[in-house]
């Protein structure tokens, strides 16, 4: 099959987005459905067809999304309007837009590695992850299930929490 000549091919733009929290329970297909859903519900089927959104690749907490050139604004707006995927609250932040995937790959930073910690708050043990910049994502478990609580190192002092790392320090 003969390929289309470059002048006949549609021009595309690529959008780099960051997923928060960094490890949501969703794969690239579910992310695509969330973005496509958001574009359709905000702009309707006609504009969604013109945007022609597609997920290209996922590297850790980063996702590259493709759209037709000139429709980046609609895509970024739809990405900002995403609230949850499969019932899990997420946030997709647009970082950059470019005409090539290579340019966006340069903007991808290595994933922040946090230390797993165990906290004792009000004599209850909770596990979480502490990052180098002082952010702590704590997993709160109760009868209803579990949910993430976002706090900082300074907040732990307020809650009179004692923190221990897996090595016991």
């Amino acid at each position: 099959m003969k390929h289309l000549s470059p002048t006949l091919r549609e021009n595309r733009r690529y959008v780099l987005t960051r997923i928060m929290p960094s490890d949501p329970d969703c794969d690239i297909r579910e992310l695509y459905y969330a973005i496509a859903d958001s574009v359709t519900s905000l702009y309707g089927d006609c504009i969604a067809a013109e945007v022609h959104a597609a997920t290209i690749l996922r590297e850790g907490e980063y996702l590259i999304v493709r759209c037709r050139r000139g429709r980046e604004k609609e895509l970024c707006c739809a990405i900002a309007a995403i609230r949850s995927i499969n019932g899990t609250q997420v946030r997709l932040t647009t970082i950059a837009t470019s005409g090539t995937i290579a340019a966006l790959r340069k903007r991808i930073r290595p994933e922040k590695q946090g230390d797993p910690i165990t906290c004792t708050i009000n004599s209850g043990e909770q596990s979480g992850i502490m990052y180098a910049d002082g952010k702590i994502d704590l997993i709160r478990r109760d009868m209803k299930g579990q949910e993430l609580v976002y706090l900082t190192k300074d907040d732990m002092e307020k809650f009179h929490a004692t923190t221990t790392k897996p090595d016991g320090i």
Binding site: M20, C76, R83, V90, R91, T93, T94, Y150
Partner: peptide, 12 residues
Amino acid sequence: ILGQRTVGEMIL
């Protein structure tokens, strides 16, 4: 923090 949006996103 997942509900907070950047200034750029607010504009959009």
